[in-house]
Design a binder for these strands. Sequence first.
DNA 1: TCTGGGGTCCTAGGACCC
DNA 2: TCTGGGGTCCTAGGACCC
Length: 419
Amino acid sequence: MFALLDCNNFYASCERVFRPDLNGKPIVVLSNNDGCVIARSNEAKAVGVPMGAPAFKYQELFNEHKVNVFSANFALYGDLSMRVMNILSTYCPEMEIYSIDEAFLDFRGFDYQDLPKLGKEIAIKVHKWTGIPVSIGFAETKTLAKVANRVAKKYPKQTSNVHFIDSDEKRIKALKWLKVEDIWGIGRQLSKKLNAIGVNTAYEFTQLPDEYVRKQMSVVELRLKNELAGQPMLQIEKRQAKKNIATTRSFEKNYTTFDELAERVVTFSVSCAEKLRRQKSCCTSLMVFIHTNGFRKEMPQYSRNIVVKLPYASNSGIELAKFALQALQRIYKQGYLYKKAGIIVMDFCPENEVQHSLFENSDPRHKVLMKTMDGINARIGQQKIKLGSQDRDRIWKMKQERLSPRYTTKLSEIIIVNS
DNA sequence: TCTGGGGTCCTAGGACCC
DNA sequence: TCTGGGGTCCTAGGACCC
């Protein structure tokens, strides 16, 4: 049996942990710059706030239903996520942290355990110890565990937040209930295609011939079909080094000059370099992109990206910033209102296996310098040491008007019980 | 006025090799 | 008159996930 544990409305639930007065009340959490809705409590879903809703368009609805609005507080969510995962790791050695609020557990071989009982125990303990409510689905494949999890979420009372698919009857019942677009791995495009040929439920999808799925779709969907039929095709995956790393942001206002964009590009490069060093990789190419606000159709639009191959592998913020700036120079055009920019670093190699070049190499002094900078920033706070070409005063100048305290990671913001 | 950020995998087609 | 068969690597684009 595989289990999938998923935290219910995770970000919204995090906001409730230290604010029990918000239980039963609608909550939404907004993206960076307080742009759009990225999480909703059940009550917020019930009053009709859709996922991804632009906050400014829904202000009236928020007011009308007294929706509690929060800016994303990733320090809090990350810390609570870690606590949840720590508890899970005490139950099962084979675990895959699939996202900030989800984990697969491999219970194959737990033959003498009463898994239904264990599942309930896990759900209760996580809730009790962290304040985060969770749902758990058990089944013979990861994809079916996802399905089971959905059932548990949809029927919390009947299932006590834990659902088992342990017979063919239950499997078929769940698949007949599940809409095809709700299958893990079937998105908007594929469900449109499937609906067009009369396939509306997960069960109907499993009845398609293999060759059809393989030809009309791809091996991924064929794997999915087998998984839904109860044949495990996916295993628990070990945490792997990333193959791409990105730092991209929308700006709080439009930028016009090269210098404004350059500062952002340098800062994003420094951030990518830090992330590279954290996983002990160097990159050998990088992409810079800039674009105007695509939502403002009446404005002149401009959008370009450029990929540059580096002459040598590097994870030095100084070097990446230098190459990124050269790239920016090649794509920047005057006369546009820029809304977003980003850096994506690609083509990695391990930092201790860098192929040296005969003529041009990464400055060896940077290694020591970066280590020192990382050390200082780790000790006294992010971005305390920066490059001269970065804006000294700003951290991420983001609009975050509804930010909750960092209850668990910042001593000065700890909750006061009685003052 | 205001619309997020960060990832992965697969396929088809072109260029090239012997 | 007749024009093979088997590969690899790379890229862009499209799909998906949270």
